[in-house]
Nucleic acid binder design. Structure first.
Lengths: 233, 233
DNA sequence: TCATGGTCGATTGCTGACAATCGACCATGA
DNA sequence: TCATGGTCGATTGTCAGCAATCGACCATGA
């Protein structure tokens, strides 16, 4: 078994990516990103390069590169010669995020519907079923994850890598907001009714309907979040 | 004349923004970006950190940070432990870029129309007039720049900073493609007819019409570029 | 009491040097 | 002729240290 590792490339081509050596810069970027998205580091919290370097056991330069990467995703902000901080998200930010997301998902749903094939149908149906099952079990934690997975799968099925890149940036900021404010609490009872039309249209290859349903769903979700912020302060 | 350069800052208070100290990292990023977008560095061309550091008279670490920034914009690509190269753009890339752009501009046009006010109207009309004038003069160089300015202005008027960020990424990649393949040559005779409906709808505050015209314009432009690539090889 | 100016610690900005890795080349032998 | 293994130059990956800058604190004096 161990000896077979040498032949991994020929016998298990899927695991080839695992062999690729990951520079510490990338590892540090991922670790820091997870710390932020998981809510360990709250929005507005100060970050010092030296402390992070110590925590991750790498050099300050490496941490610096990672911070610069995350600043491009608007997860951290830099005040020159002063310091880094986890990004904060106000009402204007939420409006920007959800209007932009509605546009990206509208395109993704249309493209996914137009390019749909048997493999894509099986994959999308599988993710949908897992999401709906979690909703019926009222398993909030799993449902929230599955919700993200479903939307992300649609974007992946669009076949547009740049669209996926930009969508992931938006998704990260939503996760940052949710995990820092405990504002998740989706209405699981209506989640199935809200997502079914989107998935059905994509599975049926109806790009126009998929685009409309998707855009509308994200916009109404955005209004729900904004209303919640306005109410809770 | 030369001596007056020293007093630029005090005699021209408008250049206060120029007083803001720009870290060399940012200067290097901008300079490198311009070299790529201007076509001095062609797609696929190898970039070595040491050579760039020597050229810009900064350290390798600074150049490295700049390269990482540009890699997030897909202007350069890094092969670990091997080297950097200016990004190449193939047919799939062009499809991704123009479908994504159509979606972003669709949203921008709608938002710009919905938020339109007197200041915005004056600004948009001014940019439009400059563009149309260049078209009538058959001034290709100015027309190409004005074309970008017009589209960018609409996105800026949307009031969505994240939308602007993502649009600028797409715009940069289009400039990279155009300036490296001399594929500009827009049809100036129809440019006015193609852009008028978009601008008119935005000025009139008709978001739905602006969105439709904008999306359609970019998609047809994308098809034109793809056809040109297929024909010219 | 309040404005002013200076000092100091903390943090980022930047650099040069060393280690790790890769791709090309070449010698070797069947 | 071709496969094999090793060597070497080139390039990126990483690090520790010094310089530049900022914000807070404090002493001073009107």
């Amino acid at each position: 078994m161990i000896g077979s590792l040498e032949f991994k490339e020929s016998t298990h081509p899927m695991s080839l990516t695992a062999l690729k050596r990951q520079p510490a810069e990338q590892l540090a970027t991922e670790a820091l990103k997870e710390s932020i998205l998981a809510g360990d580091l709250k929005p507005g919290e100060r970050l010092t390069e030296a402390a992070l370097a110590d925590q991750f056991a790498v050099s300050r330069g490496t941490v610096r590169t990672a911070l610069h990467q995350l600043s491009r995703d608007r997860l951290v902000v830099l005040t020159p010669y002063t310091g880094w901080a986890v990004a904060t998200i106000d009402r204007q930010d939420l409006w920007e995020i959800y209007t932009l997301r509605s546009s990206l998902e509208r395109l993704a749903a249309r493209l996914a519907a137009e390019r749909m094939n048997d493999d894509g149908r099986a994959r999308l149906a599988g993710v949908r079923d897992a999401f709906f099952a979690a909703c019926e079990r009222a398993d909030v934690a799993v449902a929230v994850d599955s919700d993200f997975s479903l939307h992300r799968t649609i974007v992946e099925l669009s076949g547009n890598r740049r669209l996926l890149d930009q969508y992931l940036m938006v998704e990260q900021q939503i996760r940052l907001f949710i995990n820092s404010t405990y504002a998740s609490a989706p209405n699981l009872s209506v989640a199935i009714a809200h997502h079914s039309p989107i998935v059905d249209a994509i599975l049926a290859g109806d790009g126009e309907a998929a685009a409309g349903h998707s855009e509308h769903h994200v916009l109404s979700e955005g209004e729900r979040v904004l209303a919640m912020v306005d109410h809770a302060g």
